[in-house]
């Protein structure tokens, strides 16, 4: 059914091979704590950045590997952004 759908449900339709051993995006929570604007919260197509009690909550599983968060990150909070290791990550069936 076509309805307003949240990103969690939408991501559930996709095929992912999550790399459980190595995170391809790593945040420095201390840097994020100093970041007032937190643009990562709005730009991520997968809605993976959320805020809880003023702290950034992030899980790299579900990442669409677009790279937008890396480009808007203001405070150096993203200390690592790489593509997942070979074979891992999103596997678009349609693209």
């Amino acid at each position: 059914m076509i309805k307003k759908t949240d990103t969690t449900e939408l991501l559930g339709l996709n095929k992912f091979q999550v790399d459980e051993e190595e995170a391809h995006i790593v945040l420095d929570k201390a840097a994020c704590a100093k970041c007032t604007k937190k643009p990562c919260l709005v730009v991520c197509p997968a809605g993976l950045y959320t805020e809880k009690n003023g702290e950034i909550v992030f899980d790299y599983a579900g990442c669409l590997e677009c790279g937008t968060c890396r480009l808007v990150c203001e405070y150096g909070g993203i200390t690592k952004w790489e593509y997942p290791r070979g074979t891992f990550g999103i596997a678009f069936r349609l693209g």
């Binding site: 076509i2 339709l13 790279g67």
Partner: peptide, 22 residues
């Protein structure tokens, strides 16, 4: 997606993939 001029085009459909890219 739910705009009154868009929804009728996709009504009754099933979303099969969701993605993002630069």
């Amino acid at each position: 997606k739910m705009h009154p001029a868009i929804y009728p085009l996709i009504k009754g459909g099933t979303t099969v993939e969701y993605g993002g890219h630069l």
